[in-house]
């Protein structure tokens, strides 16, 4: 679904991504670890197409199309969606209106979706105005529910979220990624796995979200270089035990 080859990206004068190769297949969920400033958010912003992030080398392919030069809205309409860490406040635009805009004319059950996220009380507030960390996450997920993208980029979905809400956020992410666990399905879990089409790329610092979302592959991004592809839990344990320095060595 997504294939990144030899990607180099600059933000202003600074090269923020030096070497990124990554492939995400339909139905897969990947996790991105890395210390602050390593380029994780830059990678997501580049995939979404934000103008500040300038691709200097390499290509991004999505659904077999080269999207390297594509505008943000074209990418969104092609099926990429992103949950932002610090989205801007849009004064006077009600959250309800934004969610409706995200649905792009599709019929959505807005109240039901908001209810799922305990977010009804925020629908008539200005988008992101004075939202706490956890409220921003729920607002972002609500917009993604309405948008229903095929590849979901999640920038630290658990940061600033209290322990009670984190399971809710985890459940909704699973739903978005068609990974809802449970026995009430007619199909076996193997069948469901094989039918699953949605893919995700998550940034996590703490790894908490892995308690709720069973990711398939973990990567470590260190100083703009993507490495150490492996089992996400093992990767997390390795980082916890040995620190990112160890990943540096693994690269060499």
């Amino acid at each position: 679904m997504l294939k990144i080859e030899n990607l180099k990206v600059s933000l202003g004068d600074r090269e923020v991504l030096k070497s990124v190769n990554l492939e995400i297949k339909p139905g897969e969920a990947h996790v991105l670890f890395g210390p602050n400033g390593s380029g994780k958010t830059s990678l997501l912003m580049t995939l979404m197409g934000f103008s500040n992030y300038r691709v200097t080398e390499g290509t991004i392919n999505f659904k077999d199309r080269d999207i390297t030069g594509m505008s943000i809205d074209e990418r969104a309409r092609l099926g990429i969606g992103m949950s932002f860490q610090r989205p801007p406040t849009i004064k006077g635009l009600k959250t309800r209106q934004m969610v409706a805009l995200c649905s792009a004319g599709k019929e959505i059950r807005l109240e039901e979706m908001a209810n799922r996220l305990n977010f009804e009380d925020f629908l008539d507030r200005d988008l992101n105005a004075g939202f706490s960390g956890g409220e921003i996450k729920r607002s972002e997920l609500l917009q993604l529910m309405a948008q229903n993208p095929d590849l979901i980029l999640l920038d630290e979905p658990e940061s600033g979220v209290d322990l009670e809400s984190i399971s809710l956020i985890g459940e909704v992410i699973n739903e978005l990624l068609e990974r809802k666990p449970g026995k009430d399905h007619a199909a076996s879990s193997r069948e469901r796995r094989s039918k699953r089409a949605k893919a995700g790329l998550l940034i996590t610092h703490t790894g908490y979200i892995l308690n709720y979302v069973d990711a398939d592959v973990g990567h470590v991004l260190y100083d703009g270089v993507l490495s150490c592809h492996g089992n996400p839990r093992e990767t997390l344990r390795c980082i916890q035990d040995m620190g990112y320095q160890e990943c540096m060595r693994c690269m060499v």
Partner: peptide
Amino acid sequence: AQEEIEYMMSRGMSE
């Protein structure tokens, strides 16, 4: 702010 426009665009709206 460009940031606001691009945020909205990332939800599929044209500029």
